[in-house]
Amino acid sequence: MYFKVCISGLTAVGKTSLAQEIVRRYKAEYLSAPEVLLQIAKMRLDVGEDAGKAPHFWLSEEGKAFFKQREKSSELDKEVDNGLLDAVEKPHRSVIDSLSVPLLLPAKNQAFSVLLQANLTQRTERAWLSSPTMSRRNLRNEVQTKDRKTKDILQSLWGFDITKPSLDRYDLVIWDARLAEMVRAKSYGKQQQEIKTKLQILFSFLDIYDQMVQPTVSRKKLGALTAQCRKVYAQYHPIIRKYPRQFLSLPELDQLDWEKRNLTD
């Protein structure tokens, strides 16, 4: 088994910031559907080499033109999604940023899938902090438009609605709606505190998952990690919509149907 984390969520929900921190902590490769699509755009379409260096490429004229190309043909998205699905099966540690992959994986798989959820107002505010030259009203409309277009592309291609995903396809679901109430800081400080909180939640579960995919697993270490996970869950349970309950109990963790591995004291 290998460390495979899929992180998913709508535009400006904060996937990239969290995914990059997961990559650093667990020494994994970062594979991003938006970045792969951007590279394809640079190779095959009239998109400049500097595209994507500024935040939110999808807000630029080049980004909007590329979206029109994707709407005309879903083959680009199909190629990217199939490539990322292949990456899940490869023997290396990876973090995959994709809306589609968690919903396309078999029901029983050994990847750890995370869904980040936030309402439109929260996502607009997050996008505005990195694109403050646009009014919040206009940015809100842009986010809504991108959601709709992405939904239409993927629904036409794969048949699912990414704006209403089935939560049973995810191991961990973090919901931003009540996070703002738990964070007192303002503006950029607030955003950083929200990221820190979500990372604390993610790491508490992923530390256990990382142990479980090792060829040799220490029950003593797992016991300490499950205890820490219980503390984090107790503190932040209002924003955790779904989680692997077995991760809070070592006896239940022992019952999980993982690949055969060496269990040590």
Rank of each mutant, 00 (worst) to 15 (best):
residue 153 I to W: 09
residue 175 W to S: 13
residue 182 M to I: 09
residue 130 S to C: 04
residue 162 I to C: 13
residue 167 L to H: 15
residue 123 R to T: 02
residue 131 S to T: 09
residue 169 R to L: 07
residue 154 L to H: 15
residue 154 L to A: 11
residue 184 R to L: 09
residue 152 D to V: 00
residue 150 T to N: 13
residue 139 L to S: 12
residue 165 P to G: 12
residue 137 R to C: 03
residue 163 T to N: 11
residue 184 R to Q: 15
residue 119 N to G: 05
residue 128 W to A: 04
residue 163 T to E: 15
residue 169 R to T: 11
residue 125 E to A: 05
residue 153 I to K: 05
residue 151 K to M: 15
residue 168 D to S: 13
residue 177 A to W: 00
residue 155 Q to H: 14
residue 147 D to N: 09
residue 155 Q to N: 15
residue 158 W to M: 10
residue 138 N to F: 03
residue 154 L to Y: 14
residue 171 D to A: 06
residue 163 T to V: 02
residue 143 V to C: 01
residue 182 M to R: 12
residue 144 Q to L: 07
residue 163 T to F: 00
residue 129 L to P: 05
residue 133 T to C: 04
residue 124 T to D: 01
residue 157 L to D: 15
residue 116 L to E: 12
residue 182 M to A: 13
residue 174 I to L: 11
residue 121 T to N: 10
residue 115 L to H: 11
residue 176 D to C: 01
residue 174 I to C: 10
residue 122 Q to P: 03
residue 138 N to T: 05
residue 121 T to W: 00
residue 154 L to R: 14
residue 131 S to G: 04
residue 136 R to E: 01
residue 115 L to K: 09
residue 168 D to V: 00
residue 185 A to D: 15
residue 133 T to K: 12
residue 179 L to Q: 13
residue 173 V to R: 08
residue 128 W to S: 04
residue 133 T to R: 11
residue 142 E to N: 08
residue 130 S to G: 07
residue 171 D to I: 00
residue 159 G to I: 01
residue 164 K to P: 13
residue 157 L to F: 08
residue 180 A to V: 07
residue 167 L to C: 08
residue 155 Q to P: 11
residue 148 R to Y: 15
residue 128 W to Q: 06
residue 123 R to E: 03
residue 123 R to S: 01
residue 157 L to K: 07
residue 148 R to W: 10
residue 129 L to A: 11
residue 167 L to G: 14
residue 140 R to T: 09
residue 126 R to Y: 04
residue 133 T to A: 10
residue 127 A to E: 13
residue 165 P to I: 06
residue 177 A to R: 07
residue 124 T to K: 00
residue 165 P to H: 08
residue 172 L to P: 07
residue 181 E to V: 00
